[in-house]
């Protein structure tokens, strides 16, 4: 598999872009970074094949005083959440393409580094340098703290929800991943397990399509697939030395049994790895399937597969799928998966 660049989106004043997030339909891409703005990218015209036509449709300013580290869409696309080094998270409501900042969530002691919506849309998680993971309960525009967990012993880098259950994963500078849930009939959130296996900061964690697998990426340059066996997740496959330097980000696309994970690194490259979850006859596996060197002129901070339209979500083929990336070079790039070997990067800008 290789990646073919289909669009290069410039707008963050050449400052580091930290994070990108697709709206659930894949129509809009939100990006955020060091310039303290959120940009919303969409396409005009319907020429899906040429990849062109992407442009910045809105800029959200004045939501945060410092770098915006992460953005996340609510499952119904009504809200966009953002979090910042300024210690707050903000919630923006989108009505007819107009965004209003409707809530500022204050609770973390300092930098907030990750934000994620649960599939139900009624729970929002944040994490930060204060080693805490917060769960906020949303009722329309009101957000109340439902839980504060201090399980990690260091900076928490990333939070991710299970695709359909109220199970939260967080990853940290303490080299571990923690999982949280509520016991049936109990409102209290608690840390239910700790996944140890990485030997340095775990920068990113995500679930596979049905939540049976968890993927993690680390400063130790490896990707680990954790699988649920019985009640607990444990290491099922590992790919070492995927990149030359720290891996900051990964994103999953695929079915319940297999898929592709894209990963971005401080070595400026994006890698593509084939993931097979375990089946009755075969153990789980990770197999490197492509590498796009010099994807950005600087670290790749975030990658995100574009959601497939609903009628194509069971498509078996990975060819044609689109992944977005954000980098230290201030760029957001869109790539299409095509058959074949990687070649030298020809940037569009």
């Amino acid at each position: 598999m290789r990646l073919e660049e289909v669009a290069a989106l410039q707008g963050h004043e050449e400052l580091r872009v930290w994070h990108i997030a697709w709206s659930p339909s894949g129509a809009t891409l939100a990006s955020c970074g060091e310039d303290k703005t959120i940009r919303l990218w969409g396409r005009h015209g319907a020429t899906e094949q040429d990849g062109g036509g992407w442009c910045c449709q809105a800029v959200l300013e004045e939501g945060h005083q410092r770098t915006i580290r992460c953005v996340a869409w609510s499952p119904d696309t009504r809200f966009l959440a953002s979090c910042s080094f300024d210690g707050t998270a903000s919630v923006w409501e989108c009505i007819e393409n107009e965004f209003d900042c409707v809530a500022s969530l204050e609770g973390h002691e300092n930098e907030v580094k990750g934000v994620a919506w649960a599939a139900s849309g009624s729970l929002l998680a944040t994490c930060g340098r204060d080693k805490a993971v917060f769960i906020w309960e949303a009722e329309d525009e009101n957000f109340e703290v439902a839980a504060v967990m201090h399980s990690h012993t260091q900076d928490v880098k990333c939070v991710a929800w299970h695709p359909h259950e109220d199970i939260l994963a967080s990853s940290s500078y303490d080299d571990t991943i923690r999982l949280y849930s509520r016991a049936p009939g109990d409102d209290d959130w608690r840390c239910t397990s700790t996944l140890s296996g990485h030997t340095s900061t775990v920068w990113c964690v995500c679930f596979t399509a049905d939540g049976r697998g968890i993927l993690s990426a680390s400063d130790d340059r490896s990707i680990i697939l954790w699988e649920k066996q019985g009640e607990l997740y444990s290491e099922a496959a590992r790919l070492s030395e995927v990149h030359e330097r720290a891996i900051y980000t990964l994103s999953w696309t695929g079915s319940t049994a297999h898929g592709l994970v894209a990963a971005g690194s401080s070595d400026d490259a994006i890698s593509i790895t084939q993931v097979a979850l375990s089946s009755t006859n075969n153990p789980a596996s990770l197999r490197k399937d492509g590498m796009q060197p010099s994807a950005h002129q600087g670290d790749v901070n975030c990658v995100a597969w574009r959601p497939l339209p609903e009628d194509q979500q069971d498509a078996a083929s990975m060819v044609g799928r689109v992944v977005a990336s954000a980098g230290d070079d201030g760029m957001v790039r869109l790539w299409r998966c095509v058959e074949g070997e990687a070649s030298d990067t020809m940037h569009l800008d």
Partner: peptide, 12 residues
């Protein structure tokens, strides 16, 4: 060393 080479901490 870990702190010095964590780009996010340095940026913050």
């Amino acid at each position: 060393n870990k702190q010095l080479n964590d780009k996010e901490r340095v940026a913050a």
